[in-house]
Design a protein around this nucleic acid. Structure first.
Lengths: 205, 205
DNA sequence: GAGTATACGGAGTCGTGACTTCGGATAGTG
DNA sequence: CACTATCCGAAGTCACGACTCCGTATACTC
């Protein structure tokens, strides 16, 4: 928990109202800006679109990296919650494939989110990595449920499935990919995940 | 053809020998540097590792973008040639899958190549885009051959296959992906591409 | 409504990296 | 071996973006 948030400052006065709303607005604008321009988008751009001075951005988030991390945590947590919502779904196969599709579609245009954060899944020990790990676990659970329901072949495991999820999300995020093409791409992958027959033997020979 | 290369300068003396070797060395070093650090790697880094002054780099390549483009053209052309070598292969299916695997494996660690160049496949009209297009065509030919040989189902088309190729290459390039996981990921995709049965109907219901 | 801690905004500083300039070196020619 | 066109490297310039300072404004307390 590196960012202050709105915790009470040790018995002192609580955070002022405008400060809290500003923080929230900055966070939302940052998600938009980093989503569109990648992690190299400038902090000034965020400040400008949030109708706020640069200093205010840095007051709430000590560094640009901290701001980016806060954005990532928010997004990862949201995705994880969505995944967890699907745990008790009546059709675990559909739940898994739907979530996969949804995540990839959602990544379209969110460059920084797909780029910086998925890849941050293992390179640092910060909050973002932790949130990313939570999402990964949730996807793992969806996968297991789908496998138990017979909708996904038993011999695939989370690492390769998650790698495919990340790969297609990133591809989807970097534009130049029509919706129809994206869907056909996913169809191929889903076919490969389906248990109807194992062509794997063919390739091993 | 935006870069000078070693064309004869209109009847004047030909390019000096040290200039040519320097240009070549810079290009090779740049491929290494951009491959490792992405397109945001600095030009000074390239100059330093090439044992050359910064000015020399800019003399041969007027801008950093031009240098990056030259690297990309070289790489894309090389890959295209490799693909074309496989056109007369006795087993078009194996040729296609092998090339796919080879390209993805080759992308490991080549961040800028996978990142900047594949994505440049449609955003500008420069040499890199042209070279990228040549590679795409070659992959398309390999795909068609494989389909005629019955190794790949007939109802997939180049856009989605190429999108998968790009997606997995990028994923592979950004490290954090073990070789075994990468192979299992490809196995899933190859299964999905195989014509042994069409699970697509199942998903459409 | 006065007082004060809290928060704000704009004008800085500072470092980095792309690109230029120019005096000095060196390959090629005779 | 001299001569010159070509090429080179080090020390710049310049723009941009992350981050800071400080005087001002505003939200909360009483």
């Amino acid at each position: 928990m590196s960012t202050p948030g709105n915790r009470d400052m040790g018995g002192k006065r609580p955070q002022r109202a405008d400060a809290r709303t500003n923080r929230e607005r900055i966070l939302n604008v940052a998600e938009e800006v980093f989503g569109k321009g990648g992690q190299s988008a400038s902090t000034e751009e965020v400040a400008r679109l949030a109708n706020v001075g640069i200093a205010t951005v840095f007051r709430h988030f000590p560094t640009k990296a901290a701001l980016l991390e806060a954005v990532l945590v928010q997004r990862f947590d949201r995705l994880r919650e969505q995944a967890e919502t699907l745990f008790p779904a009546p059709d675990p196969g559909a739940a898994f494939f739907d979530f996969f599709s949804h995540l990839v579609a959602d990544a379209a245009g969110k460059i920084a989110i797909a780029e910086a954060l998925f890849e941050a899944g293992g390179d640092n020990g910060g909050d973002a990595a932790q949130a990313s790990d939570g999402l990964r676990r949730a996807v793992g659970a969806l996968l297991q449920h789908a496998q138990r329901a017979g909708a996904v072949r038993d011999d695939v495991e989370l690492p390769e499935v998650y790698a495919l999820l990340v790969a297609t999300s990133r591809a989807s995020a970097h534009a130049h990919l029509e919706e129809a093409v994206r869907d056909r791409m996913l169809t191929i992958i889903f076919d490969g995940l389906s248990p109807l027959r194992s062509a794997r033997a063919q390739l091993k020979t």
